[in-house]
Computed example of a mutant assay.
Amino acid sequence: MEFAFLTEQVFRFSLTNGKWAEINVPSTLNAQDIKILKSQLSVMEAQTRIESDEDLKKKRIRKTRISRI
Rank of each mutant, 00 (worst) to 15 (best):
T28L: 08
I66R: 13
A21W: 03
K58P: 00
K57T: 10
V10S: 05
T64I: 12
T48M: 15
E2G: 04
E22A: 06
E22I: 05
S27I: 00
K19M: 06
L37D: 03
F5K: 06
L15C: 09
V25K: 02
K35W: 01
N30Y: 00
A46M: 07
L41Y: 08
S39Y: 09
L29G: 03
A31F: 03
T16S: 07
I66E: 14
N17W: 02
D53M: 12
E45C: 10
I23P: 06
T7P: 00
A21C: 04
T64C: 10
E8F: 00
D53A: 13
E8M: 04
T16N: 05
I23L: 15
E54T: 13
M44C: 13
A4L: 05
D33M: 02
F11N: 04
V10K: 12
N17E: 14
E2L: 11
K35I: 03
K59H: 11
K58T: 08
S39Q: 13
K63S: 14
S67D: 14
K57W: 07
E51N: 11
S14L: 02
I36A: 06
I61D: 15
L41E: 06
K57Q: 13
E22L: 05
K63T: 09
S14G: 00
F11P: 00
R68N: 13
R60D: 15
M44K: 09
L6Q: 01
G18N: 07
R49A: 14
M1S: 07
T7G: 05
F5I: 04
D53I: 06
